[in-house]
């Protein structure tokens, strides 16, 4: 291919990829290269004919909010999936679903529901055969969605994480349990306290002294000697045995 031909065809390709209107292709017809190159002139003519043909076809048009309406009917309330589908369809703004998409979706939904999400999405997209979608798009979209979810979870404040909330709830329950045990264990005492407010608790703390009052206030020698600790009694006995006790 001559360099001039290559240059012209790059421009033609660029014009076609930019989806220019057929009028723009016509302007190329005045390109000076065509004056001397019959092959390129024939190519341009065939492209113009194709563009004319394509423009004569009715444009595929997806009714507005189709996805939302379909999903609303099929799964009322599942707004999250609806939004996902909307985002999925918005991946290519120029894509237009064929007119019978809803019918095919409805027909295949029951069978697809039992399939894994990735398979279901691919199958759904497959319904629109008129749309030339890249292979494995469903898988990539789902992977991206999963990644976004992960990022959202990471961005959650510590206090909003489920594990922290569960742990806090458990701690609170433990405190409540402990309080309940304490409350129950002291309930009789508190009830008696109410019933016997006149009893001085300090008096109860010394109840042993008060019960043994007469014995403790005894000052006779037997009482005095008997309150000596047993080991000290034996020590005095040992001292007596050894002749050590003084007067």
């Amino acid at each position: 291919m001559k360099p001039d031909c290559r240059s012209f065809r790059i421009r033609l390709e660029s014009t076609l990829e930019g989806a220019r209107a057929q009028s723009e292709l016509t302007s190329l017809a005045w390109h000076e290269h065509l004056l001397a190159c019959a092959e390129c002139r024939a190519l341009l003519e065939s492209e113009e004919a194709l563009e004319l043909l394509l423009e004569s076809l009715p444009k595929p048009h997806l009714p507005p909010r189709l996805a939302r309406r379909v999903l609303a009917r099929l799964r009322a309330g599942d707004e999250r999936r609806e939004a996902q589908l909307d985002r999925l369809l918005e991946l290519d703004a120029d894509t237009r679903a064929p007119g019978d998409l809803a019918r095919r979706v409805l027909a295949g939904l029951e069978a697809e529901r039992v399939q894994p999400a990735e398979t279901r999405l691919d199958a759904l997209l497959e319904r629109a055969r008129a749309v030339d979608l890249p292979e494995g798009l469903g898988k990539r979209v789902l992977a991206h969605v999963a990644e976004e979810r992960q990022l959202t979870r990471r961005r959650k404040p510590v206090l909003m994480r489920n594990s922290v909330r569960l742990a806090a709830a458990a701690g609170l329950l433990a405190l409540l349990f402990a309080w309940a045990v304490w409350h129950k264990s002291t309930a009789p005492t508190r009830e008696r306290d109410v019933a016997h407010e006149s009893v001085d608790p300090r008096m109860l703390e010394h109840i042993e002294v008060l019960e043994q009052w007469d014995f403790l206030r005894r000052n006779d020698l037997d009482a005095v000697l008997s309150t000596l600790p047993h080991s000290d009694q034996l020590l005095l006995e040992m001292g007596s045995e050894e002749g050590l006790l003084g007067g």
Binding site: L221, S226, G247
Partner: peptide, 23 residues
């Protein structure tokens, strides 16, 4: 309480025998 009184007498008797008479 009566058992303690009894024990007191027993220990008292024992201790009196141990301590020097002047004490």
């Amino acid at each position: 309480s009566e058992l303690v009184d009894n024990e007191t007498t027993r220990i008292g008797a024992r201790m009196r025998a141990i301590l020097p008479p002047e004490v």
